[in-house]
C-alpha cells in the first residue's frame, strides 16, 4: 500500500461569538474515523460535498496537518514527521492555490523547483521537455505566471508537481474552472502519465467525467466518514443514478409515458419539451431515442449525465 490510513480523525475548535462578550467553543470533527488504503498504480477519486473533509484528509496525507488521532502512512513515511523526505516522493496540486512563482516566467519556476528538489539538470530537463510537448506549453514558457490563463497555469502546476517524478500524485480539484478543452487535455495527459509510469493518483473533484476518464476506484466521504468505496458502475448501481434525455419535439405532443425503460420526469411547453429519465442498466440512450422518434418527430435532443453531487446526495438518502 502506498497510502495507508487507519481510523483517521481530525478535530477543529470552532469559536463563535454568542452575544456581546461571550464566546462558545465547539469541537467539530472534520474527519471522523476514516480508514482506507491505496495500492501502487491505482487512481482513486476522493469525492464528497464541500466541507465533507476532503481537503482536511489531503492536508494530513501531505504533512501539512497533524491528525488528532489515527495513523497515516504515505510511501511508508509518517507525513508530518518526515515532511521533507515525503515531499521528494509525492507531487501535489491544489487547483485553487498556486505553487508557482507568480512574478517569474514559468520556465524559471521549473528551474527553481529542480534546484529545490536537488535534482541534477539531467534528471528534470528531459521530464520537463516531455511535459512541455504533451501539454503544449512551449508558447507561454517565458510568460510570467501572473499573466497566464487558468488553463495554462494549471498545466504548469501539474508539470511542477511531476518534475521530480513522484510515486504519488495528489490532485485537489485540478479541473475546477477550466474550459472543456483544457479539462480534456489535462485528463488525456494524466491517463498517459499513469500508463507510461504507473504513477499512483489521488484526486478530488466535482466533475464526473474526471472520474469516468481517470479513476479505477471511488471513495465517497460525507461528514468526515467514508460512505462508499468501490468503482463508478458500483456506485451508480447502488444509488440508481439516472441519466436524463431531454427531447424537443417538432410540434406539441402527448406525454411520452410508455417509452420502454424510461420514466417521464417533466413536460414543458404543452409537450414541446419532455424529460425522460433512464438507467444505464435498463436501456441505452440510442434505444430511447429510437423509441421516441418512432412515435413523434424530433427537433433536438440532449443527454444529461448524473452530476456527482446528485449521485452522492442519493447515497445519503438511502
Amino acid at each position: 500500500m502506498i497510502v495507508e490510513v487507519t481510523d483517521l480523525r481530525r478535530e477543529f475548535v470552532v469559536r463563535r461569538r454568542a452575544g456581546r462578550l461571550r464566546r462558545t467553543r465547539d469541537v467539530v470533527a472534520a474527519v471522523d474515523g476514516v480508514t482506507f488504503g491505496i495500492a501502487p498504480g491505482e487512481c482513486v477519486g476522493y469525492i464528497g460535498a464541500n466541507g465533507a473533509g476532503k481537503s482536511t484528509t489531503i492536508k494530513m496525507l501531505t504533512g501539512i496537518l497533524v491528525p488528532t488521532s489515527g495513523t497515516v502512512r504515505v510511501c511508508g513515511l509518517e507525513p508530518v514527521r518526515d515532511r521533507t523526505t515525503l515531499a521528494r516522493r509525492i507531487g501535489v496540486v491544489f487547483g485553487q492555490r498556486s505553487q508557482l512563482w507568480w512574478d517569474l516566467p514559468l520556465r524559471d519556476s521549473f528551474r527553481l523547483l529542480g534546484a529545490i528538489h536537488r535534482l541534477p539538470t539531467s534528471a528534470w530537463e528531459p521530464r520537463l521537455a516531455e511535459c512541455v510537448q504533451l501539454l503544449e506549453m512551449e508558447p507561454f514558457l517565458d510568460t510570467p505566471v501572473r499573466q497566464l490563463s487558468l488553463g495554462q497555469r494549471m498545466r504548469g502546476e501539474v508539470t511542477a508537481a511531476l518534475l521530480h517524478s513522484p510515486e504519488l500524485l495528489v490532485l485537489d480539484e485540478p479541473t475546477i474552472g477550466l474550459d472543456l478543452l483544457s479539462k480534456e487535455r489535462l485528463r488525456a495527459f494524466l491517463v498517459r502519465e499513469r500508463a507510461e509510469r504507473g504513477t499512483t493518483v489521488l484526486l478530488t473533484t466535482h466533475d464526473l467525467p474526471d472520474i469516468e476518464r481517470l479513476c479505477d476506484r471511488i471513495l465517497v466521504v460525507d461528514h468526515g466518514r467514508v460512505a462508499f468505496d468501490g468503482d463508478l458502475p458500483g456506485l451508480v448501481a447502488r444509488v440508481g443514478a439516472e441519466r436524463v434525455l431531454v427531447v424537443d419535439l417538432a410540434e406539441p405532443g402527448p406525454p411520452l409515458i410508455d417509452v420502454p425503460g424510461t420514466t417521464l420526469r417533466a413536460v414543458e411547453a404543452d409537450g414541446l419539451r419532455q424529460h425522460l429519465a433512464f438507467r444505464k442498466e435498463d436501456t441505452t440512450a440510442a434505444a430511447v431515442v429510437a423509441a421516441v422518434s418512432a412515435r413523434v418527430e424530433l427537433r433536438d435532443l440532449a443527454v444529461h449525465e448524473p452530476a456527482i453531487e446528485d449521485v452522492v446526495r442519493r447515497l445519503y438518502l438511502e
Binding site: K59, I64, T84, A87, V92, R97, S98, Q99, I116, H117
Partner: peptide, 14 residues
C-alpha cells in the same frame, strides 16, 4: 491566508 505557506510545506526544504 493565500496558501503560499502550504506550498512551502510541500517542498523538500525547511
Amino acid at each position: 491566508r493565500t496558501g503560499t505557506f502550504d506550498a512551502f510545506l510541500l517542498r523538500p526544504l525547511s
